[in-house]
Design a binder for these strands. Sequence first.
DNA 1: TCCCGCCGTGGGTTCAAACCCCATTGAGCT
DNA 2: AGCTCAATGGGGTTTGAACCCACGGCGGGA
Lengths: 161, 161
Amino acid sequence: MATAGQLLIGEAIRTLDGRFRLSLPLELAGPLVADGARLVLAKERAGCLSLWSAAVWRPRLDAALDVLRSKLQAGLLAQRVGEVQQAGRLLSARHAALSLAGRERLVVPEGFRAFLGVEPGGDVVVVGAAVCVELWHPKAWQEVLTADMPDFRRRLDALTG
Amino acid sequence: MATAGQLLIGEAIRTLDGRFRLSLPLELAGPLVADGARLVLAKERAGCLSLWSAAVWRPRLDAALDVLRSKLQAGLLAQRVGEVQQAGRLLSARHAALSLAGRERLVVPEGFRAFLGVEPGGDVVVVGAAVCVELWHPKAWQEVLTADMPDFRRRLDALTG
DNA sequence: TCCCGCCGTGGGTTCAAACCCCATTGAGCT
DNA sequence: AGCTCAATGGGGTTTGAACCCACGGCGGGA
């Protein structure tokens, strides 16, 4: 399976330039674009965006959309319009397709800038997260590190044990 | 069934002009007017309006009204006059019929402007919400994204599982 | 120590889409 | 019938994204 053969690992600090461009370190960009240049940027939580190979992201999303579409047509969700509306709202805003320009550089799209919360000229922490690459607001990154690192050994053991 | 065949998905930022006109992106306007040009604008919450195909909105509204009417006639709500009064009041102000002008442009009606909270010249976030199109005040939109996005996967699973 | 190549950053240009202003049209009212 | 107001559609202008190139800093090698 694509990208499964290569874990995305690495950490780097990059600056977001005046036009919201961000260059990825080669060690992360290389494996990411290995299976096709098409990428998907997704909102994870405030202060964190994730970058996926489209080959990984697309099938998962399309499957969910197909199920949702067919259920709607069958009228199965007539009593849950509010939930469908909310899920649809998030589906629209959650991801955007993009590709890397020269120098392994990407442009953070309009709707994702406020969510990331980094102003032009500010720093972004680029982190490999095994299956994707994450872009963190430095402050949010510090908070996650502080909160999660003490349990790291236990989490890893749970996965490898 | 109308509009069920096409999920409304997409996100865009547009500006409200001096006459409270707003142009929709083609990708959202197309599917929305696919089954008839008649639309309904509804108040969702402060900072958010939703735009529905009349073919979808009408049946839902009529159904609710029918239930309310029959319960009233049966005297089932005699002890809850206050609630009925409040519901009736909101039913009156909740929605307005409208249609798109050229260039996929709509006019936000008088009573809806303060509810949306965007002044002329300000930005509006236009979001596809599967069954309707939503118009958001940028600030309210950010708050919803921050609050709801972390639970996205669970919510989607609840609908498609 | 000096040279050279690579990587990260900023800037200029081109091109397309979206926004704003304005002229024209149509309807409604006096 | 004439006037007034509002809506509509066209065109110019501006904004933003994609592409290309230039500078600086760092590291490796000679």
